[in-house]
Write a protein that binds this DNA or RNA. Structure first.
Length: 884
RNA sequence: GGACGCAUAGCUCAGUUGGUUAGAGCGCACGGUUCACAUCCGUGAGGUCCCAGGUUCGAAUCCUGGUGCGUCCACCA
């Protein structure tokens, strides 16, 4: 019972996370607990690979906290659990970061100065360093992933997967090369995909010029050199007299030109004059118009952002420099009609570097999303092998058929909308870091092959979009296309869930669906769980410039990993952005310490927990144990069982926040504040306490792996908590006991309030009497201890000169001899009577309404019960008032 | 222009098929240190559930309209 003198517990008063976390982590890793074990149902998550560009940020921390929670939960439930870690080479991001570093060191143009091989060496070196940093940080978060299976998006095996997929798609005709308009980044010297565009608002002068008989407006006069088509809407009455194909002479930038009238529905009649000239080489819409009408396309701006000879005197000039000069020229020619200085439009920038993008027509590789091909497998359900479908069809079907489920559900709509608007995916990039396109050229011949087909063949210099390899991630990490590896891991695919931020739903999630359904005929994951963005306490995005960035590693150092994890899980809902403040983390640090002290108290109560009587399970269905159990035991066991069941269900439903909150309320509000207080009075609870402690440590483990494991290993010498069995809820519950215990709590609270209201110091012991709670007659000692009273008595009527208050169906009285103010006491009672009467009235009207019969029985019963209780309470109050 | 989300206590947010007199954490006020924990304990104050209609016996919850904030997509000559 008492702390055993011969084996003093070495638990300090305060939990110090920084002292134990690293050791615990490496003990887990060494023990092999992170590896899939047993022959339970397979459960697999692939870690969204962090980029090898820098350090772990708060978004990663959310991801790791949630994924580790799911993984630990499933592992403890006996599933054969595998969490595969890895990193992403993040092609453009990484190469441009290294280039920027080299420029900072004094290099002018790293690509020219170093050449392909040397630059790649530099980038690879940097990526290796980043890898060390980032994986150590992933460990710091407590992530229980199987490091022996770590993968890299750019390693040899993943390259095989990429090449194999490329070959398949090329064979099926859905990878094609073509001259099309792409988003060219003049700074990066590469194109980027539509999804990588970030639109930024910009105020630019908006000029209106005379163009023959028309007026046209533009914010970009520097692109207008080759313009020789004037386009209007076919239904525009203002320009009825002009017919498609009409030509006219007009004075323009480089002198007289012949322009042609084109009619196209892409024109917005409301905008500007309803007429525009087009620059097909440098504008997506214009390009499409030109394609429709088979018009000439001319390049005006080169790939470095300088004007070409077509611009005459401006040739070689930077576009920003040329623009005002071009306007001057047109003004001198008398062609400038007006200038709107307040015009705001949106310009396309690269979301990774915020450089302005310049559309260009270039020869690139594309994945055709709308082109039908012969489906390779029957496994998707909708198609037989050989049926024709498009990649879009596959992507839509995966979610439509319920094979993949998105949480929260509303993102399903967003997903479908994205697919509907999806254009062909440009996959070639003009950078060197990444998977080289497995295509070889010799004269006019093209061959797709991993290795050189022979002498004089030259490989395509470009690399693939980083998302091409990321798209394969769920199965390339499991060994595909290597037959042996893939066979070994086949059981883990489709993976259970893909957990990531909603901001990369399009970039990544959708592309994984595309790749997996195409290559394997199988969805990549059963569920998608999307978490929200973490913002600062005012709801602003975290950014270096605002100085509001919360670095998870700093917080871990200060408050411990468990506190950081809880702060990211509790109070957040899927798909919803959350605000995080340091004080929130502090609050959860307090809670970890509370749990520590709860455990410390229990361990001191029960002495040596690992020996004891040997019985650790405590069950109400065991008659012997049931007989010995007190009211508080039955209450806490029932609650524990309820909480176990509810928390399990909530985690299964991805409702982590609510699960954590419920556990916290139970641990702090029920266990610590009530049961442990009673345990100080009622003795002989060793087995109970042991059972409760073991259960809550297990329940908390997925949320707070470190503190729980630390306590577990201090208390129980055999085994680790990480691989312990998840608790099961009991079938037997004691509803009456729960109710009675709640009444006990209410009585104690009422007494505490009475004391506070009457200014009685807590140290002063008092006599109390209770009227009408006979079920609690054996609880005098507990009530006395909890409410700090010297004597508790059950009576028929409360003495006149005692202060009182209603509780449940009865009254509680407190001996304040002589101090009672009858007038005040009466007023208090009258007010309470009034409130109760009002409440009764609403209940009565509702109950007597014949229509109320429509309500479910449960509701009606509950309301009847409430009414009865209120009536008894009213009687008690009235009696008391009379007696005064 | 299209779609989505949010609006509940001073702050951050729960509130799961509509059903007790709407909740938590933080903050605030008051009281408390021997005996697990001051990273603690106890008590309390604080709400027109954004507004207006509607459906219903019953609405924070469902419907319609509006206001404010935010996000995504498309377009911007």
């Amino acid at each position: 019972m008492s702390p055993s003198a011969d084996k003093p517990l070495s638990l300090p008063k305060t939990y110090d996370a920084s002292k134990v976390e690293d050791a615990i982590y490496s003990s887990w890793e060494k023990s092999g607990a992170f590896k899939p074990q047993g022959d339970g149902e397979p459960y697999c998550i692939v870690l969204p690979p962090p980029n090898r560009t820098g350090i772990l940020h708060i978004g990663h921390a959310v991801m790791l906290a949630i994924e580790d929670l799911m993984v630990r939960f499933n592992r403890m439930q006996g599933r054969k659990t595998l969490w595969i870690p890895g990193t992403d080479h993040a092609a453009i991001a990484t190469q441009s970061k290294v280039e920027a570093q080299l420029v900072k060191k004094g290099m002018k143009n790293p690509r020219e100065e170093l050449g392909r091989e040397k630059l790649l060496e530099e980038v690879t070196k940097f990526a290796a360093q980043s890898h060390e940093t980032i994986t150590n940080q992933v460990r710091k978060m407590g992530s229980s992933c199987d490091w022996s299976q770590e993968k890299y998006t750019l390693d040899e095996e993943r390259n095989k997967a990429v090449n194999r997929t490329f070959e398949m798609m090329y064979e099926d005709g859905i990878i094609e090369r073509g001259d099309r308009i792409v988003n060219w980044d003049p700074k990066m010297q590469s194109n980027v995909s539509d999804d990588e565009i970030e639109w930024i608002e910009e105020k630019t002068p908006f000029y209106t010029f005379k163009y023959g008989p028309f007026e046209i407006s533009t914010a970009r006069p520097e692109t207008k050199f080759g313009d020789k088509y004037v386009v209007m809407h076919p239904d525009d009455k203002r320009y009825k007299k002009y017919k498609e194909g009409d030509t006219f002479e007009c004075e323009w930038l480089t002198g007289k030109i012949t322009a042609t009238v084109i009619k196209d529905k892409a024109i917005d009649m409301e905008f500007g004059t309803g007429v525009m000239t087009i620059t097909p080489w440098h504008d997506t819409t214009d390009f499409e118009i030109a394609e429709r009408h088979d018009l000439d396309k001319e390049q005006i701006i080169d790939q470095k952002g300088k004007l070409l000879p077509i611009s005459g005197d401006f040739a070689g000039m930077d576009i920003d420099v040329a623009r005002p000069k071009i306007v001057d020229l047109l003004k001198k020619k008398g062609l400038l009609v007006s200038t709107d200085e307040d015009y705001v439009h949106r310009v396309a920038t690269n979301y990774r570097g915020s450089a302005k993008l310049e559309p260009q027509i270039m020869r690139q590789w594309f994945v055709r999303v709308n082109k039908p091909f012969k489906v390779r497998q029957d496994t998707l359900g909708k198609w037989k092998k050989g049926d024709r479908a498009t990649l879009k069809d596959l992507m839509r079907h995966a979610v439509d058929s319920g094979q993949t489920n998105i949480v929260p559900e509303r993102f399903t709509k967003v997903y479908f909308h994205w697919i509907d608007n999806l254009r062909d995916w440009c996959i070639s990039r003009q950078i060197w870091f990444g998977h080289r396109i497995p295509v070889w050229y010799k004269g006019g011949d093209i061959k797709v092959s991993e290795k050189s087909p022979g002498k004089d063949w030259e490989q395509d210099p470009d690399t693939l979009d980083t998302w091409f390899s990321s798209g394969l991630w769920t199965f390339s990490t499991l060994g595909w296309p290597d037959e042996k590896e893939w066979k070994k891991n086949r059981e883990f695919h489709p993976t259970a869930v893909l957990e990531t931020g909603y901001d990369i739903l399009f970039f990544w999630v959708a592309r994984m669906v595309l790749m997996s359904t195409y290559v394997l005929g199988e969805v990549p994951f059963k569920d998608v769980y999307l978490h929200g963005l973490v913002r600062d306490e005012k709801g602003r995005k975290m950014s270096k410039s605002l100085g509001n960035v919360i670095d998870p590693l700093d917080e871990i150092k200060k408050y411990g990993t468990d506190a950081v994890r809880l702060s990211l899980i509790i109070g957040t809902t899927p798909g919803q952005d959350t605000n995080l403040s340091e004080s929130k983390i502090q609050g959860y640090r307090n809670f970890t310490n509370k749990l520590w002290n709860i455990s410390r108290f229990i361990l001191m109560q029960i002495g040596d927990p690992s020996t004891g009587s040997g019985t650790i399970k405590y069950s109400l269905s065991d008659a012997k144990q049931n007989q010995r159990a007190t009211l508080s035991d039955k209450w806490i066991l029932t609650r524990l069982s309820e909480v176990t069941e509810s928390v399990t269900k909530k985690i299964e439903k991805y409702d982590f926040s609510s699960a954590g909150e419920e556990l916290r309320d139970f641990t702090w509000g029920d266990l610590a504040d009530w049961y442990l207080e009673i345990a100080k009075v009622e003795k002989g609870k060793e087995e109970m306490l042991n059972h409760i402690l073991r259960t809550i440590l297990k329940l908390w483990h997925p949320f707070m792996p470190f503190v729980t494991e630390s306590i577990w290993q201090t208390a129980y010498s055999n085994g680790q908590l990480i691989t312990a069995e998840w608790p099961k809820s009991e079938s037997g519950s004691s509803k009456t006991e729960v109710k009675n215990f709640e009444l006990l709590r209410e009585i104690v609270t009422v007494i505490r309030r009475l004391r506070a209201d009457n200014g009685i110091e807590p140290a002063k012991k008092l006599e109390i009497v209770i009227q009408g709670a006979d079920a609690l007659k054996d609880q005098q000692d507990n009530i006395a201890a909890l409410a700090r009273c010297s004597k508790v008595e059950f009576v028929k009527e409360i003495p006149k000169d005692w202060v009182s208050s209603s509780v449940g169906r009865g009254m509680v009285g407190l001996n304040l001899v002589g101090a009672i103010d009858v007038k005040k006491e009466k007023a208090k009672l009258e007010k309470e009577i009034e409130q109760t009467e009002k409440y009764l009235k609403t209940l009565s009207t509702r109950l007597s309404d014949p229509e109320f019969k429509k309500a479910p029985k449960k509701v009606v019963d509950k309301m009847r019960e409430n009414k009865e209780e209120a009536e008894q309470k009213l009687n008690a109050l009235k009696d008391r008032l009379v007696s005064l």
